Structures are given as C-alpha cells and as structure tokens.
Deep mutational scan, measured.
Amino acid sequence: IRCIGVSNRDFVEGMSGGTWVDVVLEHGGCVTVMAQDKPTVDIELVTTTVSNMAEVRSYCYEASISDMASDSRCPTQGEAYLDKQSDTQYVCKRTLVDRGWGNGCGLFGKGSLVTCAKFTCSKKMTGKSIQPENLEYRIMLSVHGSQHSGMIVNDTGYETDENRAKVEVTPNSPRAEATLGGFGSLGLDCEPRTGLDFSDLYYLTMNNKHWLVHKEWFHDIPLPWHAGADTGTPHWNNKEALVEFKDAHAKRQTVVVLGSQEGAVHTALAGALEAEMDGAKGKLFSGHLKCRLKMDKLRLKGVSYSLCTAAFTFTKVPAETLHGTVTVEVQYAGTDGPCKIPVQMAVDMQTLTPVGRLITANPVITESTENSKMMLELDPPFGDSYIVIGVGDKKITHHWHRSGSTIGKAFEATVRGAKRMAVLGDTAWDFGSVGGVFNSLGKGIHQIFGAAFKSLFGGMSWFSQILIGTLLVWLGLNTKNGSISLTCLALGGVMIFLSTAVSA
C-alpha cells in the first residue's frame, strides 16, 4: 500500500470489461488503480535517471590570480610587451599612462603600459546536455494484498515479495511487465516523455548541487567559461569578468580578483528545477510519464477462499488518510488461513446495510499462523458509518465519521480527471477507425466523469442509474429551450454510458 502517505494521489477506475487503462505517473504523486474483478494496485514513479550526459560548457565562479607582471614604455618608444601576453592562462590589459620627467621619461606624453596576471579557477559549475534516449524511469508497484503497516513504502525485498514489484522503462524499451506472483502480471506500455523539453534544458552542477536550467539563461551567464570537458589546462574565455584592473600608474597597475560568485548564482537559480546525482547518473524529480496498463493477466487472489471465522482485533486505531479513506490494521487469532476477511461498512448496526467501498479488493489472510496481521483500506461514505470486521458474535466494529460532501468530492474528481486527460493529450485517442474513435470517446468520458459518477451514484443499482439517464434524455427531447435540451441530452447520455461502463 504505497499511496496512503502521498498527498498527491489519483484514483483511476477501469471500465467494466476493459483490459487496459491509461494513467499519468508523476514525481511526488501516486496512482491507485481499481477495476472490477482485479486486485487494487498502487503505482508510483520513484526516480527518473539520466546517463551519458555530455559537458557543454563550464563557468568559473571563484578564481585566484598570481605571478603579476607589468612592462611600460616612454612616449615614442613603441608598445610595451610581455611574453605572458601569448599565454592563455594569463589575463592581460594594455593601456596608456601619462609619462614625463617625473617618472623617468625625457618627453612628456602618453606611454604604453601592459599588465598580466595568471588566472586560476578555484571553483566552477558545469552544464551538461541531456539526450531523451538516455532517460530511465523506475516504477514501483504494490498490490493491496496481505501486507501490514511495516511494509508500507518499503522498497527492500521486492524481489521475493509477490505484493510488490519494480520495473524500469526507457525510450528504447518502453514496454515492461511486472510479475506479482499469485496476482498474475501487469503489463506497462509507457510513452517516455517527461513533459520537459530537454532540447531547451541543461543539467547544471555547482558545488555538489544540481538544477535543470534553460539553455539561453545558461549561455548568457557573465562569467569566465570554457567549452567542452575539462582537459586539465582549460582555456578560459572572458577571464576579465572576475578580474579587475585598478587605476594605472606610470610603471605598474594593481590587479585584484573578485570574490566568489556562488551567492549571486544561487539567487539567479531561484525557482529552477532541482535535481540530484546518483553516482555518474543524474536524478530528476520533475515531469511525468504516461503509461497504458494492460490488466488482462491480472487476477484476484483468494476468490475461492472461505470466510475467516475466528476473532479479529484492531492492532491500531483506524486512521484517516490524506485522501479521506480509512486504513485499518487487524490481527487474526485463527489458524484456518488462508481465508477471506469479512469486512464491510454499514450505516447502522441493526440492518448492516453496506455503504462505501473497499479500496483493498478481496482482502485475505494468507498465513495459517496465529496472530497474522493484515492492513486494508476503505472508502467510507460522508457522515457517520460503522466499520464491521468478522462474522457472528466475534465481529468487531468501529464508529467512523467522514466530513465533507459527495458533491465536493465529485467536483474534485472531475477536475482531476480533466487534468489527466489534458496530460494524456492525443495519445488517449485513436482515429484509425470508426470503432477506435468511439472507443476513445468512451475512454475520455470515463477518465473525466467516472470518479464523479461513482461518488454521486455508486450506491444505486445499474438499472436505477439507466432509468435516471433515460429520464434526462426524455426531458431533453421534450424541452423547447435549446440549451436546457442539449444539457439534459448530454447528461442523460453520459449517465447511461457510465452506468453500463463503470464497474460497481
């Protein structure tokens, strides 16, 4: 259960009878995928790494000078000259100064003066180019299975845990398959586009800190620079940016070097996208990844198990997540596992009318040892309800109150669905055939309105939902006002479609 501690969480529900669903994975976010007769899966884009970055340009932001020398000439005696002028490691300046009897010249006039100092770069920052084909995306998957609280967001041991898996995709191999043991396998067909235009970005490294910066900004930095990788004795261009020549006297000129420019660069980098280094690879934390999940090989585990009949206890007080759902960790005293956990939410304890829904599909106890633990997640209705676990006299209950409203949740879900469709863009549509167009249209309606429909009408039977949709269509056909007619027709059509397409 990876997503319960992530604030940016998206719930995606598969269409009834569908074998695939489109998701948008982004750094700092987590996606929970639910479908009829399929286990619930949490998917998170953990890291995006980039390798084989080529150094484009380096800037010196802290330097020192040494070996200063000057040469001067009297008027009419030609130009002052130093051998160091031809050495690229030196920074030199030529000027004219007033000369006369007082400073060793027989004539009054302008004399030539040249001053040089050896330039040494102490600290530099480097910009590297990123090729999209060198990106690698690491995705962690977790099935809502027989897990306890100690396994949440624990990325170790996934090789031997059938509840978890790690997959890596690249532009050259965008397809992967996550093996989930008894739950089958989940196929991923990803489109490795981060949403960032790397043709316009460089990877900047300064003092063990890293950013993504725009090329134009990078090339306009007014500091000494050299092109390409460091060859040991780089040729620094624009050395004068960190060196200041003071007022010249008759035979000498003082040279000083400016202080470190790291603070000024940090100020200019305010708002830039931060990154990290992992050995020789860069780690990015921006952008998104679009994936199509193929769920035809994914299956529920323990459908044929019998119900657990022994007593359950709450190991922890049920807690609310950031998303309005409830996490419950229970301990089973029996030894008759594997068995299914009898769990439901009810409005009252007399009729036990089921409300809400299970995020953890078909929760089971897989071990036959005593005191096995299991964590599950529920989506309670707004208002008061009861969490009921167990059967008969051994069942345990917990009162729950959820604040908020169904309308607010439906609106929030619609906005999130619209954002998801905007990110998917043209990849969500198939114009290759008439059937493809209608299929894409259905998927689009489901992406945007599916979660809201589930919130508003999830407790009704599909037949009642179709009746309401048919009534809206009838009202649309018999209303003389054009805008009201079109609105009723659209709402009725969407409702009829979703009542037959969205899983219960």
Rank of each mutant, 00 (worst) to 15 (best):
2 R>Y: 10
3 C>R: 05
10 D>K: 03
10 D>M: 08
11 F>M: 12
14 G>K: 09
15 M>T: 14
16 S>V: 01
19 T>H: 04
20 W>L: 00
20 W>E: 05
24 V>P: 03
27 H>R: 09
30 C>M: 11
31 V>K: 05
34 M>G: 04
36 Q>K: 15
39 P>L: 11
40 T>N: 06
40 T>I: 10
41 V>M: 12
41 V>E: 02
41 V>Q: 03
43 I>E: 07
43 I>V: 13
44 E>F: 06
48 T>G: 03
48 T>A: 15
50 V>Q: 04
52 N>M: 08
52 N>C: 05
55 E>C: 14
55 E>H: 06
55 E>Q: 15
59 Y>F: 15
62 E>T: 05
63 A>E: 05
64 S>D: 04
66 S>N: 08
67 D>F: 05
67 D>M: 11
69 A>V: 15
78 G>W: 08
83 D>S: 11
87 D>M: 11
88 T>S: 15
91 V>W: 06
91 V>C: 12
92 C>I: 07
97 V>P: 03
97 V>G: 03
98 D>P: 03
99 R>Y: 11
100 G>P: 03
102 G>A: 11
104 G>L: 03
105 C>R: 09
106 G>T: 00
108 F>S: 11
109 G>Q: 06
112 S>L: 00
116 C>H: 11
117 A>S: 00
118 K>W: 02
120 T>M: 15
120 T>D: 02
122 S>W: 14
123 K>R: 14
126 T>H: 00
126 T>I: 15
132 P>W: 03
133 E>D: 11
133 E>I: 08
134 N>I: 13
135 L>C: 04
136 E>M: 03
139 I>K: 07
139 I>F: 06
140 M>N: 14
143 V>W: 07
143 V>H: 08
144 H>L: 08
144 H>D: 07
147 Q>C: 11
148 H>N: 11
149 S>N: 00
151 M>K: 04
152 I>N: 15
152 I>P: 04
155 D>F: 02
155 D>G: 11
158 Y>W: 08
159 E>S: 01
161 D>I: 01
163 N>D: 15
163 N>W: 06
164 R>L: 08
165 A>H: 10
166 K>L: 08
169 V>R: 01
174 P>C: 10
176 A>P: 01
177 E>K: 12
177 E>P: 05
184 G>F: 08
184 G>V: 04
185 S>G: 09
187 G>R: 00
191 E>R: 05
194 T>W: 01
195 G>N: 07
198 F>S: 08
199 S>Q: 09
202 Y>A: 07
204 L>E: 09
205 T>D: 05
205 T>P: 00
208 N>C: 00
209 K>N: 08
211 W>Y: 13
211 W>T: 06
216 E>R: 02
217 W>S: 06
218 F>M: 11
218 F>R: 02
224 P>E: 10
225 W>A: 07
228 G>C: 05
229 A>D: 14
232 G>R: 15
235 H>N: 15
238 N>H: 12
238 N>G: 13
240 E>D: 09
240 E>L: 13
244 E>A: 09
245 F>I: 14
246 K>L: 01
248 A>S: 11
248 A>N: 05
250 A>N: 08
251 K>A: 06
255 V>E: 01
256 V>N: 00
257 V>N: 09
260 S>Y: 10
265 V>N: 12
266 H>P: 10
268 A>L: 09
269 L>M: 12
270 A>E: 11
270 A>V: 15
275 A>T: 15
276 E>W: 10
276 E>G: 01
276 E>A: 07
277 M>L: 14
280 A>Q: 10
281 K>M: 14
286 S>E: 15
288 H>E: 07
289 L>A: 02
289 L>M: 13
292 R>C: 05
293 L>V: 12
295 M>D: 11
298 L>G: 00
299 R>W: 08
306 S>Y: 14
308 C>T: 05
309 T>F: 07
310 A>I: 00
310 A>W: 09
311 A>F: 13
317 V>L: 03
320 E>M: 08
320 E>G: 07
321 T>I: 10
321 T>P: 03
322 L>M: 14
324 G>R: 10
329 E>G: 13
330 V>S: 02
332 Y>Q: 09
333 A>N: 01
334 G>N: 06
335 T>P: 13
335 T>R: 10
336 D>I: 11
336 D>G: 12
337 G>K: 12
340 K>L: 01
344 Q>A: 09
345 M>K: 00
345 M>D: 04
350 Q>E: 05
351 T>V: 14
351 T>A: 14
352 L>M: 10
352 L>S: 15
354 P>S: 10
354 P>H: 09
354 P>A: 14
356 G>T: 02
359 I>H: 10
360 T>S: 13
363 P>G: 01
365 I>M: 14
366 T>Q: 01
367 E>R: 00
369 T>K: 02
376 L>E: 04
378 L>K: 05
378 L>N: 05
379 D>P: 03
379 D>K: 04
382 F>I: 11
391 V>T: 00
398 H>V: 00
399 H>I: 00
399 H>S: 12
401 H>V: 03
401 H>P: 03
409 K>V: 00
409 K>I: 00
411 F>S: 09
412 E>C: 09
422 A>C: 08
423 V>W: 05
425 G>Y: 09
426 D>A: 05
428 A>M: 07
429 W>P: 05
429 W>T: 01
432 G>F: 05
434 V>G: 08
434 V>K: 09
435 G>C: 01
435 G>K: 14
437 V>F: 14
443 K>I: 12
450 G>H: 06
454 K>G: 04
455 S>Q: 13
458 G>H: 10
463 F>I: 13
465 Q>N: 06
465 Q>D: 10
467 L>R: 03
467 L>C: 03
470 T>F: 15
471 L>D: 11
472 L>T: 15
473 V>N: 03
473 V>D: 02
474 W>K: 05
474 W>Q: 09
474 W>T: 06
474 W>H: 06
475 L>Y: 13
482 G>I: 08
486 L>S: 01
490 A>G: 11
493 G>D: 06
495 M>W: 07
495 M>V: 15
496 I>G: 00
501 A>S: 15
502 V>H: 11
502 V>A: 14
504 A>Q: 11
504 A>L: 09
504 A>R: 02
